[in-house]
Amino acid sequence: MGEEALDIAAVAAIARISLGEEERERLGRQLAEILRYAEQLMAVDVEGVEPATHPFAEGAVPAEDAVESGFSTDEALRNAPRREGNLFSVPRVLEDV
């Protein structure tokens, strides 16, 4: 079912990955094959079975709400592709009005 439904261009846009035409064709073909393989799950009787999102029932344990020292501004910005002063620099987001 999924292979016909897989609109590779639309899904790639959701994943924020720009694809060329050749890449779209190739990845689309490979993903269709993987989805065909996954279709064996459709035959499993899962009526009344709870989905497991985690291995164990305990779930996450909240951390104590205590102050810890973090990075300095310089450390936090050390890997920035572009930086201006104490800020990450990006092209403008808002259009002129």
Binding site: A12, A15, L27, I34, M42, V49, E50
Partner: peptide, 29 residues
Amino acid sequence: KRRLILGAFVLSSGFQDAYYVRAQRVRTL
């Protein structure tokens, strides 16, 4: 890229129940 696109697909509305949620149920089994 393959995996991220597949991930976006199995979580997309209309397909999430058929793929992602069903997989989680089989995970319980």
